[in-house]
């Protein structure tokens, strides 16, 4: 008994994998049973097996859509990250720029993306929907990178700045050898948030855009919804979830690899 509570206090990896897997399996079994016993209409809630068979039968289309959503997300993430870091550097160099532009930047963040989406679509052109989706996703993704990187650039200790001053470092050397590396834990934590947000942005933008796209997962979902094809909806959602977990896991791995030589405390906790 005490062994068991000890295990729970410090769960090894197998336990942390086994427990949620078991829970998910039980959930699926109950779900399957409830629907099969006729308590819920399969039109509203398809059985897990129906979802699985839809996934299997239409794997080609669904994986293609997953790939499309993945590509847009990665592109938006990359654009957002680079733009985020560049903006943070510019703001940290120029107080004037920071004071003038930051409030406007915050405005783009507090305005819900769904509301900006139609405008961006009109601007970029309805025949250019993929670009519009990319822009929207990037607009959501860049912000945490900028905010975190700015915090990180300011986090450098005075002593280290003094050291660079006494050694007559140029401001370029100071940026590249001191400030940017010191900001890296913050930037990486911002990029982790950006990864998730880029996916949200890609999906939301695709919903708003409707057709005319390369058909990502969001399009599959709304198409399936119009036809009341609930198994397809669940299959798409499942893939979307996997995509989110995959992106987040990948970024955590990158964060770990980049920072493992630092002290553990260097990993900025996600807020």
């Amino acid at each position: 008994m005490s062994d068991w509570s000890y295990l729970l206090a410090r769960p090894p990896l197998w336990l942390r994998t086994a427990l949620p897997t078991a829970f998910f399996a039980i959930l699926l079994a109950i779900w399957e049973a409830v629907v099969r016993l006729g308590h819920v209409s399969p039109l509203i809630l398809p059985t897990p097996s129906a979802v699985a068979s839809d996934l299997w039968l239409h794997a080609g289309t669904l994986l293609w859509s997953t790939w499309n959503t993945f590509v847009v997300t990665v592109e938006a993430f990359a654009i957002g990250s680079v733009a985020g870091i560049v903006l943070a550097i510019l703001f940290s160099r120029s107080r004037l720029l920071d004071l003038s532009v930051s409030p406007l930047m915050v405005l783009t963040q507090v305005t819900p993306t769904v509301a900006i989406a139609p405008l961006v679509l009109v601007w970029v052109g309805v025949d250019n929907v993929n670009a519009a989706i990319l822009i929207l996703a990037a607009i959501i993704a860049f912000f945490p990178v900028t905010a975190n990187t700015m915090m990180g650039l300011k986090s450098v200790s005075h002593d280290l700045h003094d050291l660079f001053t006494v050694r007559r470092a140029s401001s370029w050397q100071r940026l590249v050898l001191l400030e940017l590396p010191a900001a890296m834990p913050y930037t990486l934590s911002g990029m982790k948030l950006a990864g998730g947000l880029a996916l949200v942005g890609a999906v939301v933008a695709e919903f708003v855009a409707g057709s005319g796209t390369d058909a990502g997962l969001a399009w599959r979902i709304s198409e399936a919804a119009n036809r009341l094809n609930t198994p397809r909806m669940f299959a798409s959602l499942f893939l979307l979830g996997l995509l989110g977990v995959g992106i987040s896991g990948l970024l955590s791995l990158v964060q770990y690899l980049c920072l493992r030589r630092w002290h553990e405390a260097a990993i900025v906790r996600d807020r």
């Binding site: 200790s157 002593d159 280290l160 003094d162 050291l163 660079f164 006494v166 050694r167 007559r168 470092a169 050397q173 050898l177 001191l178 590396p181 010191a182 890296m184 030589r261 630092w262 002290h263 260097a266």
Partner: peptide, 26 residues
């Protein structure tokens, strides 16, 4: 001129060698 502050402010992302190399790199 070289400065040794009260706290040994090293670059945590650099090895001992690279920390010592820093002034020459600059």
């Amino acid at each position: 001129c070289a400065l040794v502050p009260q706290e040994p402010t090293l670059l945590p992302w650099k090895s001992v060698f690279d920390n010592v190399y820093l002034p020459l790199k600059l």
